[in-house]
Structures are given as structure tokens and as C-alpha cells.
Simulated scan of single mutants.
Amino acid sequence: MLHWFSDNRFPLYLAPMAGVTDVIFRQICKELGADVMVTEFVSAEGIMQADDRTRKYTEFTDGQRPVGVQLFGADGERMGEAARKIIDWKRPDFIDINFGCPVNKVVSRNGGSSLLKDCPVLASVASGVAKAVGDQVPVTAKMRIGWDENSVNAVEVAKILEDCGMQAIAVHGRTRAQGYGGEANWDVIDAVARAVKVPVIGNGDIHCGADLVKRKSETAVSGVMIGRAAMQNPWVFREAKHFLETGEVLPEVAVEERWALVLRHCRLAVDSGRNGNERQTLTAMRSRLMAYCKGFPGAKELRQMLCQVSSVAQVEDLAAWSLQKHLVLAEL
């Protein structure tokens, strides 16, 4: 049922990231070559309470397919009911279960990566969702390699998830204790991919086409998932695919094209009205804008100014200032 793995394809997933992979950013990444989308994680309890704010996180367009909605929680029966509600609202291509989030507010509610320490509950959650959904859509899971370096249990957990009906497993090669520090352990990801029969998607430290080719050739994964690298450089999907197909490194994306995308993202966000008015939307986007602008001419000064933007017009002014600075530097 996961047709994006057929014909020996090697799909590139956009990793789900809270506060980042909203419907607009997913649209941008899809246009730039991402194959499979996963929504920001949503609370199963929020879905069950018919909370409008939670429901907004499940939004997607048909142009983003294949797309999965990611759920977190610790009650398999309730999560199964929530999954059915989501399918009734707007049939996604799959339901994904979050067993990897390291954030305290999720872990403290016995969700995300906390379940890596409690395999019986993890199994009840996975089987509960799979049974509730039946054959309506596939159910997949995303996990980390373990809680900490002393409890790396990814192979054991993956086998449990496969037995519980998960049809693919994404593995982030860090422990919960690592957060996003240190290096992803691709040896463990590879061991997981060799231990189960379902497709395994490797996640962690994929920044360019060479990283993609290395992991495709040296491990048994069936695809890769790109997260933080896409925040700064959503062109990474296009670049990685081109390198995979040709062995050529595409020229660096011009500053002008980068700014055009930044401004388009801002305008789409304001038009969508997800965060209320223009000021609220741009305030919420400040960290995103700073990520986009890493490496721009005058980046340090630019980031300081981006911390204060509250309108698209202000971002347009900063773009004009940055591009002028770029032209001056180019003439030196």
C-alpha cells in the first residue's frame, strides 16, 4: 500500500517538525522535490476533543500527496479513535505514530520517545491504532534509536512495531538524551533496516546529495527523511535528487532566488491566516526567517533585524537591503 516505495524508488521524506512543517512549508518542499510529507504531530486527545486548533495541524492539500498525519499519545484505543476521525475528515495516505519526539511537554505526557522505555505500552499504542484503522490506510511509525546511550533498543522496538502492524518505520539515529546534538548513528539505523521486512526510512544528518548517496549505498534503508537541513535549505531535495541521478552538484542557489522564496513564504503565511493577523503571523515566523537567512550577506546584522519584523513590508525592505549589500560585495 505504500506505493512510493515501488519500482525500486528511494523516496525523500520531509521530516515532521513542530512549528515548521505546516501546510505552506510542505507545499514549498513538495515543489522542490520532496516525495512524501508528514504533518506536524498532533495530540490524539486534541483530536478526540474536536479542538479546532488541533484539527488545523492535520490540514494538507491534494498536491502534497502522499501525505501522512502524525499522532502522539499513550492510549492505543483513544489514538485509534482519533486516527479514524482524521480519516473521516480528510483521508490521508497514511497515519504515522510518533515514538521519537524528545520534547519535555510530550515526554511528560508519556508520549513520543518516552514510550521507548515502556515497550508494552508502545506495543499497545501501535496495535491499537493499526486495529482501529484496519485496511483503510497504512499505519507507520517514527522512532529514535533509544532513550539514552545505555538503552539503545531500536532493533527490539522495530520488531515489535512490525509485529503490531506498522507498514514502515522511520528511525532518527539519535537517542532522546542526545536531542539534536552529536552525530546520528547510522549503524543502528542500518541494523534496524536489516532486522525487519517493512521499509525503514533513515533520518539524521542528511544535508546534501553526497550524504544521501552514502546512506543509500552503505545501508539497507529504503528511503531517507530530511528535517533540519530543509529548514535552512528547502532546495536540498532538488539538489539531492539531482546528485543521486547524475553525480553532479548543482550550483549554489542564488541569493535572489532565496529571497524570492522567503518573501513568497511570508505572503502565503499571511494569506492563510493560520496565526491570525499579519503581525502575529510574522512574529511567529521570525525563527523560520532567521533559519532561511543563514549564510546571507550581512547575516549577523540581518538576523538581529529579523528578530523584530512584524509585517511583510518590513521583510521586503530587509530583502532589498540584503540584495543591495550582496551586489556591493560582488563588485569588490
Results as ranks from 00 to 15, higher is better:
L2H: 02
W4C: 06
F5H: 09
F10P: 05
P11D: 07
L14G: 01
A18R: 04
V20F: 13
K30G: 04
M37E: 01
A50V: 12
R53H: 15
R55F: 10
R55E: 13
K56C: 13
E59S: 13
G63L: 15
V69H: 00
G76Q: 01
M79H: 02
E81H: 08
P92S: 02
C101G: 04
K105I: 08
R109L: 13
G111L: 01
G112K: 03
S113P: 07
P120D: 11
S127Y: 09
S127N: 09
V129K: 00
A132V: 06
A132S: 11
M143Y: 08
R144C: 07
V152K: 10
M166H: 12
A170T: 12
V171F: 07
R176H: 11
Q178Y: 05
Q178N: 13
E183T: 14
A184P: 01
A193Y: 08
K197G: 13
P199K: 04
N203M: 03
K216S: 10
E245K: 09
T246A: 11
G247Y: 05
V253D: 05
V253E: 08
W259L: 01
V262K: 00
C266Q: 08
S272L: 15
S272N: 14
P297K: 00
V309S: 01
V309C: 02
V312R: 04
D317L: 15
L318G: 04
L323I: 12
L323A: 13
